[in-house]
Write a protein that binds this DNA or RNA. Sequence first.
DNA 1: AGGGCTTTCTTCAGGCCGTGATTTAACGTG
DNA 2: CACGTTAAATCACGGCCTGAAGAAAGCCCT
Lengths: 413, 413
Amino acid sequence: MAERGKQTVRDLRRGSRSTLLQRLYFEGPLSRQELGQISGLSAGSVSNVIGELLADGLVEECGSVESDGGRPRILLQVPPERAHLVGVDVGETQVRVALFDLGLTELAASDHPLSDCGHDSDHVVELILTGLAEVLHATGTDPDTVLGVGVGVPGIVEQGDPGTDGLGIVVHSQTVDWDAVPLGRMLRAGTDLPLYVDNGAKTLGQAEMWFGAGRGARHAVVALFGSGVGACVIAEGARFRGATSSAGEWGHTKVHVGGRLCRCGSRGCLEAYVGAEALVERWGRAPAGSSEKAGLAALLAAAEAGEQDAVDLLAEAAEYFGAAIADLINLFNPERIVIGGWAGLMLGPRLLPAIRDAATAYALRFPRAQTSIDLGLLGPDAVTVGAATLPLWHFLQSGGELPARLSAAAATG
Amino acid sequence: MAERGKQTVRDLRRGSRSTLLQRLYFEGPLSRQELGQISGLSAGSVSNVIGELLADGLVEECGSVESDGGRPRILLQVPPERAHLVGVDVGETQVRVALFDLGLTELAASDHPLSDCGHDSDHVVELILTGLAEVLHATGTDPDTVLGVGVGVPGIVEQGDPGTDGLGIVVHSQTVDWDAVPLGRMLRAGTDLPLYVDNGAKTLGQAEMWFGAGRGARHAVVALFGSGVGACVIAEGARFRGATSSAGEWGHTKVHVGGRLCRCGSRGCLEAYVGAEALVERWGRAPAGSSEKAGLAALLAAAEAGEQDAVDLLAEAAEYFGAAIADLINLFNPERIVIGGWAGLMLGPRLLPAIRDAATAYALRFPRAQTSIDLGLLGPDAVTVGAATLPLWHFLQSGGELPARLSAAAATG
DNA sequence: AGGGCTTTCTTCAGGCCGTGATTTAACGTG
DNA sequence: CACGTTAAATCACGGCCTGAAGAAAGCCCT
């Protein structure tokens, strides 16, 4: 078990590059000195590896800091403009494509509504490719500087064999009626850029982990509360994927065997009790024809105004949600739970205390005591950011691997 | 995230040793040739590393195989008698200590009932140390040849800082009323051997993964059904521990929020519906004063005889169990689910089809299709075997690290 | 019996890697 | 302007894995 195959002496260098690059990326300008301290590498190796990264243009010097009477420390950072990333959000109502620099600053975005043709997969692919072309053209960005395109989709994503250039990526989604859509192959027909696809909720969770309330945690669960509910599990600092990357399908966890019918066809799912869709439907008093978001806002307003049935409904939702979070705590033993998603952010301020109490009541004492439960910091627009972290993660993990043409440019840029 | 710290060129060798040792251990006699094929190492490296392992006595030659007209292949194996392991099961009714050789053949065992003094921790520690001395004495085993002592206990085990020689190990158990018992320190006072402690259900799961129905799976969940219920989660071939090693507390997952009162104090836990204790109590017709095991056997017999309330109770248990397995499938996305534990093995043949059906009904289609659900192969006595895998795992993982004195003996043994 | 063939295993040069000591660089202070 | 101090660069050294070349150990055919 767990044999991790052969390792050549060259992998060491990749590892060192990756470590240093990650530290610089996340912990912002640092000197070689500090880098040595926190990475455990010797000063010699740090100098050596940083030299390489400087030559590749993946790191640049940025000012210096005096050092108590000695030679000043030179600060280093990853130059944000060195490369670009694309994040795509295939949402319920629109396809959003955004272009970022390495620092994940949004440089351009393109939105296309999905009203007419629904989620026909050909149409979605076309919109993604159009949007991609648009953001590149609008900013005059050379496609060779794009590290990759990350796509967040609804449903379950089968990653296929790695190393096949994304060709094996297949998407299954009951909600938008995609059955084994070969998204990888379809997109590959329209672009040469490296492709990364994952569930949209998972990419949102990833964003929350990197830049939101999850920062710094190595074991965490981001509980996403939107129209439905889902979760993104992080263990040892990395996405927990399971055998076929579908781990974390929390919305269809049973909280009441034999209970309410869920849109997945089963009964008693969490989502049938606390998803925004379920809540609005159960309340039944939202203005006819209003959007789900407006409906939930109306429910919240009613509860704030003291209407008993709204108050009760939300209290019940908080209990179910907290109980289901207790399951997450018992099963995954995270150090932090982050509640995100648009509905989570909308209801969170009101429900958080009740959710915490329910989690305490339903979880085992010991793991509950190790876990904090907090609200997320990012809105649903962070799905594109999260999607862009997919190629970024690959980049950092590989120690700064660049597409051939970009690498040729080296430090001359 | 996921920086894995520095790696020196020496770690490569440790990795190679570990890989080869593991392959030889699990895939049984192999030639250098085959070893090179499956490990990906070059023939030169294999020869080199195996030479080292031979000199350390961790590997021995055992016969040869003709090779179609060429030089015959020399087969290699890990010599079972090279070292010993101790596994301890702190159970509900007794403390069992067993001595194994490297091949996990049981050489001696010692049982001490726990009837009188209950689970007083001092008493348990005393029994463990006595049993340890007994098995060593009975077989005339030199303590220096023992790689370590693995202990399976009820409750949650806090591992403490690694590298502190097990001193930080603390056990919390609501069922036997242990609150922060410093088992590591207590045992350390009576022995110098390396100590490893984990939850008993988890060690049973480990045994099932290594030598039972879980063999070969890299992502699996062993669902343990005994007096209560628990789970051992394996991801990427290794125990999924979570932040403080308490992950996998499945028994207190909610299947019915606000439902039956559980012995943990909460309501609606799985264990309140399908644990042997709960089933016997709910049936209410077991002969007074009989053991839990006898009670469950009586319930099963009644159901086989067609008594309606027994049939219904078991059918309901299968549905809850299956639904909770569906949760495991949705959340962990394993490739295999193994149902073990004494109650699981007793009821399994009757309930398995219903459990599978319930899991199918309650889980999402895609991950369910990737998962097989089968019965375990090992009885509860495998807890000691599982406990012994704890030091064994360390041994294999470290590439065959030996205690100082044993290593001095080298291949002379 | 002996040479040739096949296959397995060992040996060895070559290219890299990280370490740790030593040098060099760059800055304040007296 | 020399001196002390701290940061970065350099370099010899011991290790590692690879890949090619060589040695070993059988079989087969003449």
